[in-house]
Computed example of a mutant assay.
Amino acid sequence: MDAAMTEDIFPPHEELELDLLLEAIFRQYHYDFRGYSRGSLHRRLARAQQRHACASLSQLQHLLLRDPAVFADLMGFLTIQVSEMFRDPAYFRALREQVIPHLRTYPSLKVWIAGCANGEEFYSFAILFREEGLEDRTIFYCTDISPAALEKAEAGVYDLDRIQQFTENHRLAGGRTSLSDYYTAAYGAVMFDKSLRRRAVFAEHNLASDQVFAEAQLISSRNVLIYFDRDLQDRALGLFGDSLVRGGFLGLGAKETLRFSRYADGFADFDEGEKIYRRNLTDLRTLDHAA
């Protein structure tokens, strides 16, 4: 997960242009991408340069400072909104079989889906919790940096040609019902039942600059940290640790780990293979002081 160990090397003038562009975005639009993986940013912004016919990042900066519509488009390049329902089914099966029994012991539950993208992961959780009888005692906090992604997540509409993969993932994740029970199909798209959203709160949240806003028993943030540098990874993990109750659960992506984090001692491996961790009794503030 240590992005700094795998970064590409770019010419000094391109690094300077990137620094200036990210600072401009932060000061003009209040979105902080300065702690994101440099190599990933360079590759994504290169595609944005092609889109807007810019020969350099400096030209792209000139455009976005003068036209908010260019920045809105640029957000589509800077934020990765690729997911699918019940992605990595073994992860959801592990939640169903190993984590849910612990969550049943709480009279009420809060689940934070950090980086919810276009909502596929939220609907996976909503269906899982409904199937396990926990929906009515749960509030789902669905956050993302992208307003456009949150709008799509709240709409719950996906292309019909994706539903076959969603259905197979649901089955492999131990689904107790047919996925078709939860959506209607028409005109080449599916819309998930609005009742799945009745316990959900959709909100903008930036892991690079915002603070903890709720106490949660479960946080799922998958394939988000891989786009951060080491310092921003630590910041995000510190937020997750502060938000989780003692004994709460944290799920990360398949290529992510706590191993190199300053907060590693604040968690115990719960299911190492599926990257599910459990918050232990360590006071994370003492780990901050020790770093």
Results as ranks from 00 to 15, higher is better:
105 T>G: 13
195 S>N: 08
285 R>N: 15
105 T>P: 08
285 R>T: 09
51 R>Y: 08
108 S>M: 12
128 L>H: 03
223 N>G: 08
95 L>W: 00
217 Q>P: 01
154 E>V: 05
149 A>Y: 09
53 A>R: 12
249 F>G: 00
37 S>P: 07
96 R>M: 04
65 L>H: 06
220 S>Y: 12
251 G>W: 05
180 S>H: 13
261 S>D: 03
49 Q>T: 08
286 T>A: 06
42 H>G: 03
145 I>D: 10
255 K>L: 15
254 A>W: 13
203 A>H: 10
240 F>D: 07
225 L>E: 10
217 Q>D: 03
231 D>W: 12
103 L>T: 00
217 Q>K: 04
102 H>T: 03
165 Q>H: 07
48 A>E: 10
157 V>W: 14
213 F>C: 13
236 A>L: 01
119 G>L: 09
159 D>V: 11
85 M>W: 06
112 W>G: 01
71 F>D: 01
16 L>K: 14
137 R>G: 15
129 F>M: 04
85 M>Y: 01
279 R>N: 05
234 D>Y: 04
149 A>D: 06
119 G>F: 10
219 I>M: 06
261 S>C: 03
262 R>S: 13
183 Y>D: 01
78 L>K: 07
283 D>K: 02
243 S>G: 06
216 A>P: 04
56 S>W: 02
111 V>T: 02
261 S>M: 04
187 Y>T: 14
95 L>N: 00
171 R>V: 08
122 F>N: 01
144 D>C: 10
252 L>H: 14
119 G>M: 09
24 A>Q: 05
170 H>L: 00
137 R>C: 12
201 V>P: 02
7 E>I: 03
96 R>P: 01
30 H>F: 12
47 R>L: 12
280 N>A: 03
14 E>V: 10
227 Y>T: 15
48 A>S: 09
125 F>P: 11
208 A>C: 09
1 M>W: 14
179 L>W: 02
289 H>E: 14
137 R>M: 10
142 C>F: 00
45 L>M: 05
47 R>H: 11
220 S>M: 09
289 H>W: 11
10 F>E: 07
219 I>N: 08
170 H>V: 00
13 H>T: 14
99 V>D: 01
129 F>C: 04
29 Y>D: 06
69 A>D: 11
184 T>A: 13
196 L>V: 00
